[in-house]
């Protein structure tokens, strides 16, 4: 039987990581603001961008 591809498994792991990070209760943690920008706004976009960056790394790195 063909084994599931490691790239696909890495993506799925990223998805599973993203679910708790981008939902409650973790979302209620950031509060206040940083340099005038609300921390929640920074947190949401930061985690989102982080996930995308990791996915880019998984997808685009060469070779194995």
């Amino acid at each position: 039987m063909k084994r599931a591809s490691p790239v696909r498994q890495r993506f799925a792991a990223l998805g599973l990581l993203g679910v708790p990070l981008l939902t409650y209760p973790l979302l209620s943690l950031p509060g206040g603001s940083l340099a005038g920008i609300p921390a929640t706004y920074l947190y949401l976009f930061g985690v989102w961008a982080g996930l995308i960056a990791l996915a880019t790394w998984v997808a685009e790195r060469r070779g194995k």
Binding site: A12, G15, L51
Partner: peptide, 8 residues
């Protein structure tokens, strides 16, 4: 974004 990660 999260759904697409489950690319399988």
């Amino acid at each position: 974004t999260l759904m697409l990660m489950f690319v399988g």
